[in-house]
Amino acid sequence: MVELLGLLALFVLGAVVWQMRRQSEFANRWLVHYCKRQQFQLLSVYRYRFCMRKGRLLAHFRFEFSHDGVQHNEGDVWLAGVQVVDVSVPVLREDSFGEL
């Protein structure tokens, strides 16, 4: 009986690790596509934390991007499984060099 519970625990742990890896790969692919559409340069993607929202466990990822090749910005994306729930990027400001 103890062996069966050990195998079950090992199976559940493997399934959780597999799901987290699958989610990370999906977030990376989705953000590459998103940044191309928005004309951003994607710099990095990382899992920030898990959180409960509206009774669902969401994976919160942060991504770093540049919209002009110089400035560095950070955005957020929330996933439920392998479905994007929300994306948040800061308000981007263009540098204006006034005429003298």
Rank of each mutant, 00 (worst) to 15 (best):
V87C: 08
S66Y: 13
Q41N: 06
N28C: 05
F40P: 07
G55N: 12
V85R: 01
W30G: 04
W78N: 08
K54S: 06
H60W: 06
V89R: 04
D86K: 01
K54G: 05
C35G: 01
V45Y: 03
F26G: 08
R49I: 08
S66P: 14
R56E: 14
H33P: 00
S44K: 13
V32W: 04
N73Q: 04
V82S: 07
C35L: 05
V70R: 12
E25N: 05
Y46S: 13
D68N: 13
E74N: 07
Y46V: 13
E74F: 14
G69N: 01
R56N: 12
Q71R: 13
L57Y: 04
H67Q: 08
F61P: 03
E25H: 02
A27G: 06
H33L: 13
R49S: 14
A27R: 07
G75N: 06
R49M: 15
F61W: 09
Y48I: 03
F40Q: 04
H33V: 14
D86G: 00
G55L: 12
H60F: 09
Y48F: 13
G69C: 02
F61H: 03
H33F: 12
H67P: 11
R56Q: 11
C35I: 01
Y48D: 10
K54P: 01
M52C: 15
V70E: 14
E25Q: 00
L31F: 05
A59C: 04
C51I: 03
R37P: 09
F61R: 05
F61L: 05
L31E: 03
G69K: 01
L42P: 00
V87N: 09
S88H: 00
R47N: 10
F26M: 10
D68P: 08
C51L: 07
F40K: 10
Q83A: 11
P90K: 02
F63E: 05
V82Y: 03
S66D: 13
V70P: 08
V32H: 05
G81K: 08
F63G: 04
Q71P: 06
H72E: 14
H33S: 10
R29L: 06
C35W: 01
P90C: 04
D86L: 00
Y46M: 13
H33Y: 14
H33E: 09
N28I: 03
G55E: 08
Q39A: 09
K36M: 03
Q71Y: 14
A59P: 04
R49W: 12
V87T: 11
F40A: 03
L79G: 11
L31Y: 07
Y48T: 06
H72I: 14
Q83P: 00
H72G: 12
G69R: 02
V82F: 02
L43R: 12
M52L: 15
R29H: 06
D76E: 15
F40N: 05
K36N: 05
V85L: 01
R37H: 07
V85P: 00
Q83V: 05
H33G: 04
E25D: 02
E64Q: 11
L58I: 06
G81Y: 04
K36Y: 02
V84C: 15
C51H: 09
D68K: 14
